[in-house]
Simulated scan of single mutants.
Amino acid sequence: MISPGALLRAAPLDEPIETGSHLRGFGGVHGGLALALLTTAMAERAPATLLQRVTARYLRPLGDEFRIEVSTERSGRTMTALAARAMTQKDVHVDATAIFATPQPASWPTVAPPAPAAPPPEQCEVFTIPPGFVPISTSMEIRPVGPNRPYTGGAEPELTAWIRLLEDDEPPDVHRLIPLMDGLAPSYTAVLPELVLLPTVEFAVRPAAAGLKRAASPWVLLRARTHQAGADGWVDEGIDAWGPDGDHLGSARQTRLVRPA
């Protein structure tokens, strides 16, 4: 069975892709992994550039076999805009858009969220997600920070945890960061007393190139917090990622919809 990192490194993105059921999330291919594959395919069209932002819309669950189509929306001197779709023979299941930019020398002031206080990962207990619920969780190690846990009816819609891919000790690059940022349970589940599903409708990632360039550890500290949740079940969540040295690695935004289990 191929691992997430190996798939991102080796998948022939111009041919049909087979992932296997062990890389599923809620009912289909894990959303973060699907977006990472789409991003990797788009990056091949924009060499010598840096990803600035990528956004995916999940139209229907993605099966274990699909193909990727990429198109160029704009190609300029400093910015390239691309689109990609994960498709079966009949339907588009995930579509994504991304902005890549040519690195430019500059000295503008930088702004990044500070990392939360957290003990090192080896001092935190492992949290195991039932493989039957999220099969791809067997490829990741999660060590929560603080008292919040999914589906415990807590007071705060926030989850903080260390996370890494189990397959190797490589630090995250932008493509490995994307599935890791989608590796925790939805933060809204921290205030829920019972199991419900919260599939992702839209997922946007903004990597922090400087932090990723300096990354030396496989561990990523994630803090996910629900900023808005309506009585109709629509949930807006923000996620930030840091390395063990406190470097900010990226930010993400998820729009989710609550569904009964």
Rank of each mutant, 00 (worst) to 15 (best):
P218Y: 10
P116D: 11
T80R: 13
T88P: 09
T200W: 01
W162F: 07
F203S: 10
A204Y: 11
L180Y: 00
E125M: 10
R143P: 01
P218R: 15
Q123G: 07
Y58R: 04
P120H: 01
H93C: 14
W219E: 05
V145P: 02
A86S: 01
L184P: 02
L159M: 06
S75N: 14
I178L: 01
L35C: 02
V191R: 10
R67T: 12
R74K: 14
D168I: 07
L180I: 00
L38N: 07
I142H: 10
F133W: 09
L59Q: 10
V201F: 03
P61R: 03
F203L: 14
E170Y: 10
L222T: 08
P130V: 02
P157Y: 07
I68K: 06
Y188Q: 15
D173A: 12
G238R: 15
A84D: 04
R24S: 12
D240P: 00
A185W: 11
R60W: 02
A34N: 04
W108C: 06
C124G: 02
F127P: 07
A41N: 05
L7Y: 11
T138Y: 01
S217I: 00
R85S: 05
S251V: 06
R24I: 06
P172Y: 04
M87G: 08
T72W: 04
A252D: 00
P113L: 10
V220H: 07
L59C: 08
P47R: 06
V191C: 10
M1N: 13
Q52T: 12
L222K: 09
A215S: 14
S217A: 03
G146N: 15
G243T: 09
D236A: 14
T80N: 08
P218W: 09
R77S: 12
T138A: 12
T138L: 08
D182E: 04
A190D: 03
A6Y: 10
K90A: 14
V29R: 02
M1H: 13
G250R: 12
P244Y: 14
A231K: 09
W162R: 12
R214E: 13
A34Y: 03
D64C: 09
R253V: 09
E122M: 11
E167M: 05
V205F: 00
R85D: 01
L249H: 05
D247G: 10
L177Y: 06
V70F: 00
V258S: 02
P179G: 09
L192Y: 09
G63H: 14
P105M: 00
P130Y: 02
A86C: 01
R253M: 07
W242S: 04
R74N: 09
L37R: 12
A117Y: 08
L50F: 11
A101L: 04
R9I: 09
K213W: 09
P130C: 03
T138Q: 13
A48I: 01
R57L: 08
A112Y: 14
S139K: 12
L249S: 06
L23F: 03
A43L: 15
A101G: 05
G154P: 02
L257S: 07
Q123C: 08
L195H: 10
L33Y: 00
V220T: 13
G32L: 00
G28T: 06
R60Q: 11
A41Y: 03
D182S: 02
M181C: 13
A41W: 02
I17L: 12
R24C: 11
T255G: 02
R225K: 15
G250Y: 08
V196A: 15
E158T: 15
T72H: 06
G230Q: 13
